[in-house]
Simulated assay, not measured.
Amino acid sequence: MTETGTKRYRALFISDVHLGTRGCQADKLLDFLRQHDAETIYLVGDIVDGWALRSSWYWPQAHNDVVQKLLRQARKGARMIYIPGNHDEFLRGGYYGTHFGGIEVQESAIHEGADGRRYLVVHGDIFDLVVTQARWLALLGDKAYDFALTANRLFNALRRIFGAPYWSLSKWAKHKVKNAVNYIGAFEKALATEASRHKVDGVICGHIHTAAMHDDYGLRYINCGDWVESCTAIAEHHDGKFEIITWTQLSADYQPSLELAQKAA
């Protein structure tokens, strides 16, 4: 930790922020970025939600502050790599290999850990058949997810009145509905297969809003999660160990709450 209280890592991986949507918890991400820094920061897709912005413009000051903070970190020397996802697909194609404000745009990346292990870094939507083969269904699902988040806010407002803790409807459905569980497993297996094809030791991705770290398919699978509900990021320490960080409160009343998942062996 530095003198200013900022924790420094070898690398940070952030995905699925969805700037431009009402569900984005930009204030928590900004608080996280103020207290965490890294030599390399990977933006692993769906940072800006172009789908949402095309249908209705929503861009409060907090969303602009996140962008400015990332640009400042790049100017201060952090290597910033942006790998677009399906929601920020406007940065794909002709933008690969370009730089803006010190941020590199790449289709995918190979991250070499401090221990020499190599990881394919990719958003992951190209391995989601709903996105690639039935775009209309993906857009419909996106609207349903937005509705679930709105209903969730109203439901939890009532829970707060009665002193009950936060409860996530969409997260409950994601883990309880059999087809959703099967979908997550199929997605993880597809990403692991792609990593094997690249002859690397693991894969780091986003897309499905479910933070995870495991070796179930013979190599390391790491998912960044999201900044809509779970507010998670992946950090690589200088000794090569990886950690899932769950950021649940703002600094004004923040008590350290780090969810330490499996570490690299």
Score class of each variant (00 low, 15 high):
residue 167 W to Q: 07
residue 165 P to N: 03
residue 124 G to K: 00
residue 149 L to Y: 03
residue 168 S to G: 08
residue 132 T to G: 13
residue 140 L to I: 15
residue 138 A to S: 13
residue 147 F to S: 12
residue 156 N to Q: 05
residue 165 P to R: 10
residue 165 P to L: 03
residue 129 L to M: 05
residue 156 N to F: 01
residue 158 L to G: 09
residue 158 L to A: 09
residue 124 G to P: 00
residue 136 W to V: 15
residue 124 G to D: 00
residue 137 L to A: 08
residue 165 P to D: 01
residue 157 A to R: 06
residue 125 D to K: 01
residue 124 G to N: 00
residue 161 I to P: 00
residue 163 G to E: 02
residue 163 G to K: 00
residue 124 G to C: 02
residue 124 G to A: 09
residue 164 A to C: 10
residue 166 Y to C: 05
residue 158 L to W: 06
residue 145 Y to C: 03
residue 155 F to N: 15
residue 149 L to V: 10
residue 154 L to P: 14
residue 144 A to Y: 13
residue 143 K to W: 13
residue 124 G to T: 00
residue 159 R to S: 05
residue 147 F to T: 15
residue 141 G to V: 09
residue 145 Y to Q: 04
residue 132 T to R: 13
residue 131 V to I: 13
residue 143 K to F: 05
residue 159 R to Q: 05
residue 154 L to G: 03
residue 141 G to D: 08
residue 151 A to F: 15
residue 127 F to C: 05
residue 162 F to A: 04
residue 125 D to A: 10
residue 139 L to M: 11
residue 141 G to C: 08
residue 128 D to W: 00
residue 156 N to R: 02
residue 144 A to V: 04
residue 138 A to G: 09
residue 153 R to S: 11
residue 163 G to T: 01
residue 131 V to Q: 02
residue 145 Y to N: 02
residue 168 S to W: 01
residue 132 T to I: 14
residue 142 D to K: 15
residue 127 F to E: 02
residue 143 K to P: 07
residue 168 S to P: 01
residue 168 S to L: 08
residue 135 R to I: 07
residue 155 F to T: 07
residue 152 N to R: 07
residue 163 G to S: 02
residue 129 L to Q: 09
residue 148 A to D: 08
residue 137 L to Y: 07
residue 163 G to V: 00
residue 165 P to W: 04
residue 163 G to L: 00
residue 154 L to W: 06
residue 134 A to R: 15
residue 153 R to M: 06
residue 166 Y to A: 04
